[in-house]
Amino acid sequence: MALSYKARRRWALVILVIGLPVYVVLAVTVMNLFGRPPIWLELLVYAVLGVLWALPFKFVFQGVGKADPDAPVEGQ
């Protein structure tokens, strides 16, 4: 079942405003449980985690920045 354009926009907003800050707090908390690794390893882990969070939501974010494909075209 595909999400409509408006539903994807709403879910994208919820994910970015609520989900992403929660994910950041969890990632930092988990990293702090293991102690402070070398700076290069810490940077690598945060870079990988920064990309991994978006992969499950790729279908939600695709096309959200474009115009609504279902909207009526003006001037016609």
Results as ranks from 00 to 15, higher is better:
G65R: 07
D68P: 02
L52I: 09
R8A: 02
L16F: 06
P56C: 10
A67C: 08
R36N: 04
A27N: 08
R36G: 04
P56L: 10
I15R: 01
R36E: 04
L44T: 09
S4F: 10
G35A: 04
L43M: 13
Y46T: 09
R8S: 01
P56H: 09
M31S: 06
G50F: 02
A2E: 15
I18R: 11
L55S: 13
A12S: 02
L55I: 15
V28C: 11
V14M: 12
Q76P: 02
R9T: 00
V30E: 11
L43I: 10
L13V: 09
Y23D: 03
V30R: 13
G65L: 07
P72S: 10
P56G: 09
Q62E: 10
L16M: 07
V60N: 00
I18K: 11
D68R: 01
W53D: 02
R9A: 01
G75S: 05
V24R: 07
K6A: 15
P69R: 12
Q62S: 10
V48K: 03
F59Q: 09
I15M: 03
G50I: 02
R36F: 04
V17T: 14
I15Y: 00
L44D: 06
A47L: 10
L33E: 06
L3F: 09
S4N: 12
G19S: 11
Y5E: 02
V73Q: 13
V60L: 03
V22R: 11
R9W: 03
W53T: 00
W11D: 04
V45L: 10
K6M: 09
P21L: 08
S4W: 11
A12Q: 02
T29A: 09
L33I: 06
F57P: 02
L49N: 00
R36S: 06
V64M: 01
P56E: 09
D70G: 07
A7I: 08
V64N: 01
V73R: 12
L43Q: 13
V22L: 15
I39C: 09
G19A: 11
Q62G: 07
R8T: 00
V25L: 11
